[in-house]
């Protein structure tokens, strides 16, 4: 009985940690989507393809330098720079447009980027292996857990804390938050909103790129990974409520834990479960858990 009990305990611990890691990745995705929406009232349907691009650029830099760390840094940074360029020439023209127009243009952008990824890297998904120091498992007593997954939890916690500090404790963050409440007032108070908007867009997309780079050693890099991630990011913000940091965190963790625990007893059904949980939450709380009506 005791052996069985401790086996179950470690199984639950394993799945909770898995769920935490996935949930924090989803949180990064959802957070990027939600700060862009909160600030510019802009809907980015290309968010998923930036996630895929993050994974591929990570792969490419590892292939060039042989160093995982270079790839992990380069992924989000290069994707963020790409976002700055796109913001300058395309995205900023759309802030005043209808949501329908924004959605359709970003779908066009998504197609362009996805097909470009297929042109550059081909149709076969790429494998990325974690560095030597992070491969294998960590043993704590009888409990074994993959080192790389622990690393993901650590990096996402640090990144989320960083974003939180940036938003809550810096002047930039203050204007971002003020701008997401009332962008016109902020521009009247003398803030250069066009730079602020560009920085916010790049920050949101960088988070998607980081999420993609972190996931690459687990799921590989595939041009079509963006569609699934986009769907999940939407679920996260629908559950949590758009424009809310805490909401994105709660949404991400709920989705991650549901996915990980479902995979324990019904591995094929994880996605059905995620979307069903979302439907249930929407029925009970139409504005999401932390959303403003």
């Amino acid at each position: 009985m005791r052996v069985r009990g401790s086996f179950l305990m470690s199984l639950y611990l394993f799945q909770t940690l898995n769920g935490l890691g996935l949930g924090l990745i989803y949180f990064l995705m959802g957070l990027g989507l939600t700060i862009i929406f909160g600030m510019m009232n802009f809907v980015n349907f290309a968010h998923g393809v930036f996630y895929a691009a993050g994974a591929f650029i990570c792969y490419q830099f590892i292939a060039w330098t042989g160093m995982f760390w270079v790839g992990l840094f380069a992924g989000p940074i290069v994707v963020g720079l790409l976002a700055l360029i796109l913001e300058r020439f395309l995205i900023r023209r759309l802030y005043a447009s209808d949501h329908a127009v924004q959605i359709l243009v970003t779908i066009g952008l998504m197609l362009i980027l996805r097909e470009s990824i297929l042109l550059i890297w081909g149709t076969v998904p790429k494998n990325v292996s974690p560095p030597e120091i992070l491969s294998g498992v960590l043993l704590i007593g009888d409990f074994a857990y993959p080192k790389y997954r622990l690393f993901i939890i650590g990096v996402t916690i640090v990144a989320s804390l960083g974003v939180w500090l940036l938003l809550e404790r810096t002047r930039f963050g203050m204007t971002v938050r003020a701008g997401s409440e009332n962008p016109i007032m902020v521009s009247m108070l003398g803030v250069n909103t066009s730079k602020l908007f560009a920085a916010t867009f790049a920050l949101g997309v960088t988070l998607a790129g980081l999420a993609g780079g972190l996931m690459a050693p687990i799921r590989g890099a595939s041009a079509f990974m963006g569609a699934e991630a986009l769907g999940i990011a939407f679920v996260v913000v629908v559950i949590g409520g758009m424009g809310s940091f805490v909401g994105a965190l709660a949404g991400g963790l709920i989705v991650g834990l549901v996915q990980s625990f479902t995979s324990g007893f019904w591995p094929e059904g994880t996605n059905v479960m995620i979307y069903s949980v979302m439907a249930l939450i929407i029925m009970l709380r139409p504005n999401g858990l932390f959303g403003r009506s």
Partner: peptide
């Protein structure tokens, strides 16, 4: 990879 043209076209039309 013709969908790339489709994406460009969608952006231009919109």
């Amino acid at each position: 990879r013709w969908m790339l043209l489709l994406g460009l076209f969608l952006v231009v039309v919109m």
